[in-house]
Design a protein around this nucleic acid. Structure first.
Length: 218
DNA sequence: AAATGATCATAA
DNA sequence: TTATGATCATTT
């Protein structure tokens, strides 16, 4: 399944609105996990399957043919986001080669298909309901903040300050651990340009910002 | 309650 | 190992 336009993808996604994950799973003979403890990405992967995403596990948008990234977004009954949104890994080496333009973050956030799911934790996974998906692009103001957050993080890492960055950095885009556990290590560079070991990190969008996106879209 | 840090599954 | 898909769990 390939799409000719973002709108075609949007309409496919919108055709799923109002159904529960259990109903959708039954149609496609999929098994819904009892909880997400051991399958935290199940909902996102199931939606990729339903929409026919092909570029699984590649550092590019889910639907490269139309340039759209799909993100599931858990919300409560009032439409408030329940979690941050993972965007991509944070580059920790060869920072001199990294620019906002062309970065994985920029490419993915250029055009996003948000798929909100009413997913209060007390609701069993199979009873969680898809809300109305919508396409989103950042405004020029939002884009400027995203770019600034990205560039500040990249600059600090380039200066060997990765271990000075915590989740409080970034107005919209934050940097948090993204690893199997807190013993997992990868390479970065230290204050004197030497090779160091550090925890892998990811860029995440703060829930306060996705709340604004939702508010502006409905 | 919100924010930060830790963690789980899977593919290539 | 590093990328994807994220949510869990503890701290503030």
């Amino acid at each position: 399944m390939a799409y000719d336009t973002p709108k075609q993808l949007l309409e496919k996604a919108q055709s799923l609105a109002g159904f529960t994950l259990g109903e959708l799973a039954q149609k496609f003979s999929a098994q819904v996990p009892q909880n997400l403890l051991r399958e935290k990405g199940w909902i996102g992967q199931f939606l990729e399957y339903l929409l026919g995403a092909q570029s699984a596990s590649l550092a590019q948008p889910d639907f490269p043919e139309v340039g759209v990234e799909m993100k599931t977004l858990p919300i409560d009954i009032n439409g408030k986001p329940l979690e941050s949104t993972y965007v991509s890994v944070v580059p920790l080496t060869d920072l001199h080669l990294v620019q906002w333009q062309g970065s994985v973050v920029q490419q993915k956030l250029n055009h996003v298909l948000w798929v909100p799911i009413i997913a209060d934790k007390q609701t069993p996974v199979e009873e969680r309901t898809l809300a109305m998906p919508f396409l989103w692009r950042a405004t020029s103001d939002e884009l400027a903040i995203l770019k600034n957050d990205f560039e500040e993080a990249i600059e600090m890492i380039g200066l060997g300050q990765i271990d000075k960055i915590d989740a409080r950095f970034g107005e919209i885009l934050q940097v948090r651990p993204k690893a199997a556990n807190n013993k997992a290590l990868t390479h970065s560079i230290g204050p004197d340009g030497e090779k160091i070991q550090t925890l892998p990190r990811g860029f995440y969008i703060r829930p306060q910002f996705t709340a604004q996106i939702l508010k502006n879209s409905f």
